[in-house]
Amino acid sequence: MNITVASEKTMTSETHPIITISNLNKWYGKFHALKDINLDVNKTEKIVICGPSGSGKSTLIRCINRLEVHQEGSIIVDGTELTDDVKQINEIRSDVGMVFQHFNLFPHLTVLENCTLAPIWVRKKPKIEADELAMELLKKVRIPEQSQKYPGQLSGGQQQRVAIARALCMQPRVMLFDEPTSALDPEMIKEVLETMIELADSGMTMLVVTHEMGFANKVADRVIFMDEGQIVEQNNPENFFSNPKSERTKLFLSQILNH
């Protein structure tokens, strides 16, 4: 099983990072939420970001498609720097897919309409093409039979898979996941993670905020641990889990793994 959506674009420039974040600082009022973040994300790389709540991990990935506005530093996505320019922001947003903790499906649209809305109105695709693509992706996330239902009629796991399909319909180059399984029951977590693993296997660039360490171990190229708005350490999963460098990381891992 492979998801080919992103593969064509990823072939072109292997060396340039697709996302470059340098000296990023972000404040909520007077609260210093992100401190001097530097991060490069390469194409097809899978990064898992973990850390205690309030550590700034969600804020970081929300900055990447400008759901949050940063005050200092720069974020460059695919060669375009994030500024106040509305047109650029919309272009970047259509290239960066996002999956939310609470799904955020549009309750007044059917599953299919949820998926085709942006391809039709942002990508200006003919409706027939958009429908075909959406059905194909709904098949990939294994819920084509639900396409005419409304989100309120689906289970949480199904809704989250629709949300993934909705983001994929825009044929994004990067996918951001903001705690995609935190609002789900255990058996539903499994079906969503399976979908995400398949997506990872297809070569998609992914940034995932999650506490699912099994997923990190299996999929991630790099695991980043954040605390108090800083990147505490980053490493490949083997080293990260077996040999964490800092005391803070050890403490966090012992808390999260012993549960």
């Binding site: 600082n25 404040w27 210093h32 401190k35 800083q230 505490v232 460098k245 800092s246």
Partner: peptide, 13 residues
Amino acid sequence: QIETFVRLPDRNP
């Protein structure tokens, strides 16, 4: 190993 994490001070925006 502990030194690798230096806690940055909060700055004003």
